[in-house]
């Protein structure tokens, strides 16, 4: 298989699964030429609807994702899934286990599942996830579900890039709902209380409604709260209908799109600039040296950064 960027992109357009998988790997690895490749496909993307799914660990996000996918497929839609799990900060490795709950759709035609590790890139996860969304979009997926654990700012940023954000809770969480509300509260378009076959479901719904009442943001329609039992396939149809029917009013959509475009340019720029400087630094072998100087208290980090940026006449 000829792995040139051109061939891979052509393959994705022809709905070649292997080409899509490989293009994702290349872009995720930031192989030389990735930005040019993304630039080439950008104009052909934007037609897929992107749903961000977040919530605390164990709430049933993957099981729900699987159940929703089956429902979407039965409605004649194609689905791409990006399932994000954390990388270990110690080894850099990751255990990506979301597929454990999605076995039923491994071979379903029209479904493409990709597991993704956070890889500990500063702000990089967000961009990498956006890139994978675009590749799946080019691949022709109607709906793209981005699933991530609702802990850590980076991951919340990821779901924020979606057209619609779904927060999954479960009964008996109590303070768990409190814990995820920071940062998530403002971005949820839809709440789902999963495991509704367990006791305490009505209390969980009441908790969320009470929390929503406290929201002071004006002009935002309050997010619906739905109940599901993903394992028993109950309430899943209603959730799918809710997000397919969900329409953001035009002003809000525009505002969101503007913020997104702004954030994306800034994040690409920040990565580019810091990457460029760091590369020069490493070429001169100075990064390690600087770290040592800080450790030995010979220099401070402020002075080092100033020194490094001075040559660009910035400061």
């Amino acid at each position: 298989m000829n792995d040139s960027w051109e061939n891979l992109i052509a393959g994705v357009k022809n709905r070649d699964i292997r080409a899509a998988a490989r293009l994702i790997t290349r872009v995720e690895n930031r192989a030389p030429g990735w930005k040019e490749a993304m630039s080439r496909i950008y104009s052909r993307t934007g037609s897929a609807r992107v749903i961000g799914i977040t919530g605390s660990p164990g709430a049933g996000k993957s099981t729900l994702t699987c159940a929703m996918t089956k429902e979407l497929i039965s409605r004649g839609l194609t689905v791409g899934i990006i399932a994000i799990d954390p990388s270990s900060p110690f080894s850099g490795g990751a255990l990506l286990g979301d597929r454990l709950r999605m076995k039923e759709i491994f071979e379903t035609p029209g479904v493409f599942i990709r597991s993704m590790a956070t890889r500990g890139m500063l702000g990089g996860l967000c961009q990498a996830a956006r890139d994978v969304v675009r590749i799946l979009d080019l691949f022709g997926k109607d709906i793209i579900l981005v699933e991530t654990v609702g802990v850590g700012q980076d991951e919340i940023e990821v779901v924020k890039t979606a057209d619609l954000v779904m927060v999954v809770c479960m009964p008996g969480q109590g303070d768990g709902i409190q814990a995820i509300k920071a940062g998530v509260m403002e971005i949820a378009d839809l709440y789902v209380v999963n495991k509704a076959d367990m006791p305490g479901v009505d209390e969980a719904v009441a908790d969320i409604l009470a929390m929503l009442e406290l929201s002071t943001e004006t002009g935002k329609p309050s997010a619906p709260v739905l109940k599901t039992s993903a394992l028993k396939n109950q309430g899943v149809k209603e959730v799918v209908t809710a997000f397919l029917d969900h329409r953001t009013d035009e002003d809000r959509r525009q505002a969101k799109a503007e913020i997104r475009a702004r954030e994306e340019i800034l994040s690409l720029l920040a990565q580019e600039v810091s990457g460029y400087i760091l590369k020069q630094w490493e070429n001169e072998n100075r990064f390690c040296e600087s770290v040592n100087q800080v450790l030995k208290k010979q220099k401070d980090p402020y002075a080092i950064v100033k020194e490094m940026t001075q040559r660009f006449n910035w400061s």
Binding site: R18, A21, T25, S88, L96, K103, F106, R114
Partner: peptide
């Protein structure tokens, strides 16, 4: 163990058919 060795490990658990394994291997590259 492989995670701790720095690899990205996709774990799919018990009772996989050959077809499921092949399709996962390809999609996950």
């Amino acid at each position: 163990g492989l995670r701790d060795a720095g690899f990205e490990v996709i774990y799919t658990g018990l009772r996989q058919t050959a077809e499921q394994i092949v399709s996962t291997a390809i999609q996950e590259d």
